[in-house]
Design a protein around this nucleic acid. Structure first.
Lengths: 236, 236
DNA sequence: CGTCCTTTTGAACATTGTCAAACACTGTGG
DNA sequence: CCACAGTGTTTGACAATGTTCAAAAGGACG
């Protein structure tokens, strides 16, 4: 028997772009089959190749999307609250292309994929929101591809730091929100190479102390990194 | 004064997945502002950063999507008839992330972006088709990212050849449909490196004669390439 | 035939990955 | 409190991979 979600979860879900403008009834029927669960860290939520039975929403904590091939693994993205993941597989009713694991203790909602597809056909606002969201995801993957193909690993790291700095309100000092080994994988390099890359950035005014980064010469770092809105912006 | 499109163009556009199931009236109003043009080879159709005023459809010929940063250029995709490109930018009304140029003499339709967005809200079938198409595009970029991050350039080339072979009906001999320098850029390597990579694949049963590829030891090549549907399939 | 462009080749170089070991940090259990 | 194991990070030496530059070879085309 399904008991329904707590109001706090419901209102949090409702505030997501994806569900914001949709009809109350439709939101209700979407939530009917939805359940919310707490997961400990390092739990594998889905494996690539699995059938896409659910659309996932991270309510708190964080989730890593990663992929494997031939005993190699690569970190593809980090999902922070509140956002969905694995939307495209849900839409296409196709197997997941990426695996997902919790990075920390996380509260996660699972919405049955077939309900998402059904409500899509009923609710034009919801359809509009899904398309907008999906187009954003698409563009963020394209930016990532440009980052990978047009930049060296040192340039990728420099631009990553500038993006994180912007995220932290342009402070000269901020914390890496990712383990270094995971950051290395995100940037498409080995941990050893990342360690050396940090050293190389010293000459452009980057100090590193554990997870604490300080940018001592903003102009110099930017001159080297050459950030570009068509690669490094979040929202455009 | 707009004269309307020739019937042959109209029916070709209509046969696109994107427009197949939509209402006649809506298709008509979408086509009203659309015009079709023939372009010579090597014409730059759009530049990254431009406002996304049109959704493009390649009716014949071919188009390369590419990106630039810091005087470097990378080939992102090749668009073959009949398909659209730059859909996500159109949906989000955001600047293009990629530039596009014709590779050969091409016939191309331009649909005003605002009309696409307007008809999206009127026609549920069309909305559904756009989401499905966009999800497919998203997944193909994700696969490309996995290819780039999880494989060496030699492995990428080997799997590219296997994909092309499948595209050519599993023939043991087929033609590269891309200039080698362009293929190198698509695969994220230099032309020199590609040339050497072809040589290295000799030991896995790959013969190269100009643009003609023959695979003399299928099993051996596959054993090396380890193709994976979650990276190398077109449609899943 | 000469010109332009692509492709190939060679050699030097730069970057990145691998492996092994040292180091640092964390939390556990004595 | 300390010793210890476990994990993540850094370092060094080396190997593999990829790039750059220069030059030669091959094709397409006027």
């Amino acid at each position: 028997m399904h008991l329904g979600l707590p109001d706090s979860d419901l209102s949090e879900m409702r505030s997501l772009h994806l569900f914001e403008d949709m009809d109350d009834t439709h939101f209700g029927s979407l939530m009917q089959g939805t359940y919310v669960q707490n997961f400990p860290p390092q739990i594998e939520l889905i494996a690539e190749g699995d059938r896409s039975d659910f659309l996932y929403v991270v309510l708190s904590g964080s989730v890593e999307l990663f992929s494997c091939w031939n005993r190699r693994e690569s970190s593809m993205a980090t999902i922070l609250p509140v956002s969905t993941f694995i939307l495209a597989a849900t839409i296409r009713d196709a197997p997941y292309l990426m695996s997902a694991r919790t990075l920390e203790k996380s509260r996660i909602a699972l919405i049955p994929s077939q309900d998402v597809r059904a409500v899509f056909d009923l609710d034009a606002q919801f359809a509009r929101a899904i398309v907008t969201e999906l187009a954003l995801c698409y563009r963020s993957v394209v930016k990532n591809t440009k980052d990978l193909k047009l930049r060296t690993s040192l340039e990728r790291l420099a631009n990553y730091l500038l993006r994180q700095q912007r995220y932290s309100g342009m402070a000269n000092e901020f914390e890496l929100r990712l383990e270094k080994r995971r950051l290395a994988s995100v940037l498409g390099m080995t941990p050893e190479n990342l360690s050396r890359a940090f050293k190389n950035l010293k000459s452009y005014g980057v100090r590193v102390d554990g997870n604490r980064i300080s940018i001592t010469d903003q102009a110099d770092l930017e001159k080297f990194a050459k950030p570009d809105p068509l690669i490094d912006s979040y929202s455009i």
